[in-house]
Design a protein around this nucleic acid. Sequence first.
DNA 1: GTCTATAAGGGGATAGAC
DNA 2: GTCTATCCCCTTATAGAC
Lengths: 226, 226
Amino acid sequence: MSQKTPEDKPITKTRRPSRIREAHEVKIIEAAEHIFAQRGFNGATLESIAEQASMSKQNMLYYFSSKELLYQTVLKNILNLWLEKLNLINQPGSDPATMLSNYIRDKLEISKSHPNGSKVFANEIINGAPHISQYLEENLKPALEADVKLVKGWIAEGLIDDIDPQHLFFVIWASTQTYADFSTQIQIALGKPELDDGDFKNAGDFLTHTLLKGIGLTFRLEQLNS
Amino acid sequence: MSQKTPEDKPITKTRRPSRIREAHEVKIIEAAEHIFAQRGFNGATLESIAEQASMSKQNMLYYFSSKELLYQTVLKNILNLWLEKLNLINQPGSDPATMLSNYIRDKLEISKSHPNGSKVFANEIINGAPHISQYLEENLKPALEADVKLVKGWIAEGLIDDIDPQHLFFVIWASTQTYADFSTQIQIALGKPELDDGDFKNAGDFLTHTLLKGIGLTFRLEQLNS
DNA sequence: GTCTATAAGGGGATAGAC
DNA sequence: GTCTATCCCCTTATAGAC
């Protein structure tokens, strides 16, 4: 699996990252996600990120030479996670109801497991995507177009209502990511200090019921759970 | 209507704002919305807001004595606009389909007319609502609870499916505000430089069709448009 | 009400010893 | 790889003249 150097002995001078570097990089990225989510790009200080990662600011700069680089890394991590799930065609089951309900559940799952990455991304988009618009153009746009084509096929076959496929995806994105991005507001509305598994289950049930039924799929929840 | 001073002649020393003050305050708030939306609270500088408002930073500080005060003003403006529309019971028509479709159209209209206010608010919530959580607790929460009660009544009467009312509102909020907050991403996905009236019409049609049908309302678009 | 000047502090990034 | 020290710019807010 892993690439081997021609020599017998491993040569540490090559680009292979050392064990300590790898561990520190993970720690720093997690800290950066946390702080960028909480304070935005400009509000986050390298000092506070380093503190969250339990190291000195100067040492952190040894691993990520600039705030910008750190930020880009966090942004691309979450976007790549989403893009993986957006590849609907690669799903095992092939009927529209299963594909869409799986996609909704997957997106919600990421909101639950990576709320900070989602928040950093949301912040970036709200501010006009100054650091990532090109990456969206090159990666998100074509991925969405493939799915739109798929959904148009469903409409042509009469499997679902004649709705606008692009807006279907915009609404799925918004309504799944809101449970990460707007969790503070939802917590206040629900009167609880944190969203728990039950809340995400309720969200998933509501969304699959409403969106699938709403576009004309005679989908029943019991089918999926069985 | 307007409060009168006991004296005959207007006393300029009282709290009544002068004409020039009022005009400048409006200009400053609009500029602040724009810059805060684009750069976040920390990224926005008083210098850039003042420039957008065509005045000196020092003069702007004469009207709004701190960045914090300016920010709070922008936040409460947009939230109050939303709270007005959230008061569903005050609508003329009283059937669920009309109430909800009107609410969705109203929310979308605000996304179109006040995208910057929406973005500033979104940023604030994402960052954990450090400046406005108490205001949400005192104003948003009770307003939502009234609507939840209303929707529960509809369910009890069998007018709509047995869905979770709170999540219905979370999804309406997310999916209408995304056309303001995430407009940059949507523009990239649609391949156009700006969202136009047609895009908002498509969004509104998709949302009313899908959400109303999705919760079991046998609503037809033609009824509303006639 | 508007201007010039400046106080006061914060924060990104680099240099160089160990 | 990690540390101490420091450069230098940016930004909020105030003081005081006009």
